[in-house]
Amino acid sequence: MRGLTHRAVDEAAGLPSGSTSNLARTRAALLELALARLTELEMRALAPALSAGPGDLADLSDLPGRMAEAIHIQLSDRRRTLARYELALEATRRPELRRIYDQAGRRFRDPAVALLTALGSADPVRHARQLVAYGEGLMFDAIAGAGATPTLAELDDAMRDLLAGMLR
Rank of each mutant, 00 (worst) to 15 (best):
R7D: 02
D10L: 03
D10K: 05
A13T: 07
L15W: 14
P16Y: 08
P16V: 08
P16T: 12
G18R: 13
T26A: 05
A28E: 12
E32T: 03
A34H: 05
A34Q: 13
L35Y: 04
L35N: 02
A36P: 08
R37I: 04
L41I: 04
M43F: 00
P48E: 05
A49E: 06
A49L: 08
L50D: 07
S51H: 14
G53I: 02
G55H: 13
L57K: 11
D59E: 13
L60E: 10
S61T: 15
D62I: 07
P64R: 13
G65W: 03
G65Q: 07
R66L: 07
R66E: 03
A68R: 04
E69V: 06
I71K: 01
I71D: 11
I71M: 09
H72T: 00
I73M: 08
S76N: 15
S76W: 11
D77F: 03
R80P: 00
T81I: 02
A83P: 05
R84G: 04
Y85H: 07
A88M: 11
L89I: 04
L89F: 08
T92C: 10
R94M: 12
P95T: 05
P95C: 09
L97P: 01
R98W: 15
R99Y: 03
Y101F: 15
Y101V: 00
A104T: 07
R109Q: 13
R109M: 05
D110E: 15
P111D: 02
L115N: 07
T117E: 14
L119D: 10
L119N: 14
G120E: 13
D123L: 09
P124N: 09
P124H: 09
Q130S: 06
L131A: 15
G135E: 07
E136Q: 05
L138P: 01
F140A: 10
D141F: 00
A142Y: 00
G145R: 10
A146K: 10
A148T: 14
A148L: 11
T149H: 04
L155D: 01
M159T: 08
D161W: 04
L162A: 09
L163Y: 07
L163G: 03
G165C: 13
M166H: 03
R168C: 06
